[in-house]
């Protein structure tokens, strides 16, 4: 018994070392970014590399607010991210249910079409998409950008994969009891997919929060700009305000961290909360 205890302790310590080393590896650029946002311009690329600023410069943060309407961009970005994520969760879970739990002819072909569109680089569909949005009169609106996020094939694919692993017998049982499909989706499938939904919410919120190209093409009023768009104005024609970009990025990341920390509980406790375990 004693040897097993020692063995477990050794494994535990080994795992802990791996966890910490990996964490340092993952953390390093983030820390560099945050510390870099407190550096004056001349220190950022100094050789040899210094992690800590020699002269702490706190005004980078104030400068970001002075040079762009940062708070305004924050609100715009949050609005777009929240609404596009919500809409996407609704339309994708409906479709994913159809693709995984309903039988109809052409199901696989249609699904392959969904996948196929993911394989075309945005660089060539960008202008056709711009023209479409313009013809619909949605240029320079947040709604136009939100719409573009609602129909992503990625979300359908992700949820479909998770729903496929939920046994069909659950669905059949509910049908025999007379439940319609909307109810089955709402009261059985979705509660069982909490971890997948939390994943989708996190990844898509992140996507929309960091989206740059679509807002760059579609928006024209300065006050409607998003954070990413605002921060890129620090990359100027003949030089880049790297320290301001780092300060702005650091501030822009706080909501995503909060969303992630919150959503984490669902990654782990999702199924248990659904009450099927055991």
């Amino acid at each position: 018994m004693k040897t097993k205890g020692t063995k477990n302790t050794i494994i535990f310590i080994l795992v802990l070392i791996i966890l910490v080393v990996l964490a340092l590896f993952m953390l390093f650029p983030f820390v560099w970014m945050v510390l870099g946002s407190f550096k004056p311009k001349d220190e950022l690329f100094a050789v040899p590399m210094n992690l800590l600023p020699v002269r702490w410069k706190y005004t980078n943060y104030g400068d970001v607010f002075r040079k762009i309407p940062f708070a305004n961009y924050y609100v715009n970005t949050a609005k777009i991210a929240v609404l596009s994520t919500l809409g996407q969760v609704v339309t994708c879970s409906l479709s994913a249910y159809a693709f995984s739990k309903l039988h109809f002819r052409g199901r696989d072909a249609l699904f392959l079409l969904y996948l196929g569109t993911m394989m075309i680089p945005y660089q060539v569909t960008m202008i056709p998409q711009y023209e479409l949005i313009r013809n619909m009169g949605l240029l320079d609106t947040h709604f136009g950008l939100i719409l573009l996020h609602w129909f992503s094939p990625f979300g359908v694919f992700l949820l479909r994969q998770f729903m496929l692993s939920i046994p069909d017998s659950f669905v059949e049982a509910a049908r025999i009891e007379g439940a319609n499909d909307l109810r089955i989706l709402g009261s059985i499938i979705l509660p069982l997919s909490t971890s997948a939904l939390a994943t989708l919410v996190t990844l898509k919120f992140l996507d929309s929060w960091n989206d740059y190209t679509a807002p760059m093409i579609m928006l024209s009023s300065k006050m409607k700009y998003t954070l990413q768009l605002g921060l890129r104005t620090f990359q100027q024609e003949f030089g880049v305000e790297y320290t301001l970009i780092l300060a702005g990025t650091t501030m822009s990341l706080i909501p995503i961290l909060i969303i992630y920390i919150f959503a984490q509980n669902y990654f782990i406790e999702g199924i248990a909360a659904g009450g099927v375990k055991g």
Binding site: P40, D42, T59
Partner: peptide, 30 residues
């Protein structure tokens, strides 16, 4: 930013760098 480190004797670039250097010096960026 590199020129502001004070380790370079000369470099050539456009007149735009005047404003960049003056602003950086004013802002305490070196």
């Amino acid at each position: 930013g590199n020129f502001l480190q004070g380790k370079y004797g000369m470099f050539y670039t456009g007149d735009w760098a005047i404003e960049m250097l003056n602003t950086a010096i004013r802002n305490g960026d070196g």
